[in-house]
Amino acid sequence: MAYALQQLINGLTLGAMYGLIAIGYTMVYGIIGMINFAHGDIFMVSAFIAVTCFTLLAAADVSSIPLALMFVLVVSMFFTSAYGWAVERVAYRPLRGSTRLAPLISAIGMSIFLQNTVQLTQGARVKPIPPVIEGGIELWQTPDFTVQIGWSQLLIIVTTVVLMVAFTWMITHTAFGRQQRSCEQDRTMAALLGVNVDRTISLTFMLGAALAAVAGVMVTVYYGVVDFFIGFLAGIKAFTAAVLGGIGSLPGAMLGGLLIGLIESFWAAYLWAEYKDVATFGILCLVLMLRPSGLLGRPEVEKV
């Protein structure tokens, strides 16, 4: 029982991170209907920025952890959203209105490009930082097992929840949210009604990237080790999460992320760890067979 609880905590932490990245996929998909394959690599770039920031802070002897975290978050979000903006501008905007597959290929190219840029400019070696947040709370002590939740795990889960709430509020209640939703529905009509479509799409990309940056900082804090290859796996998992939850739906992305995190950790905990990705994809197939638009996705209306 204690063991299951510990695995639940592990799964939630992992799922929260997948969820944060998945939101980026889902928003982009919602607004321009393309899979942004480079999103995982944007996340990777943000993790590198975080490593640089933490190293700088360590050199400057900043000892206040909350202050350091805030600083790293802000800096990383700023630069990463610049990357999000640039990727959209260079690789996707010229392709708007062409076939559905063109931006997909361009995105795959972008992903390869970003990965190798980072490898070249930052080196192929793994980048470690000393542990930022250590320790945790012991939740439950049984004779042979102690359940504990690390402060960093707690931080990840709380940050994710707060961001989710803030984000949902923004999409439902602000002017930008309304514009964003109107572009999702019908870009031409939105443009006719005076919505600056280009700007809205750019902002969407930047927001997605900023959320990925939060995930990047969290990964750096939690695992402490970053390399140029982390974007690929995280990207695929997060993309799976977005589809599982119903691509285009924000709560869906979060739900999908959590589900995938939980499936992974429980499957690995009780069944065969080596087949956990098979389980993830298998469950995805099952869900999609029963609900072709994902768990919380709107069913596609077929228009003739």
């Binding site: 592990n10 695992y223 796996l233 690995a268 080596e274």
Partner: peptide
């Protein structure tokens, strides 16, 4: 046990 190289999260293994 077997793990997947290239992942970052091995907390499941560690808990086990």
């Amino acid at each position: 046990e077997s793990i997947t190289a290239g992942e970052k999260d091995y907390s499941g293994l560690v808990t086990k």
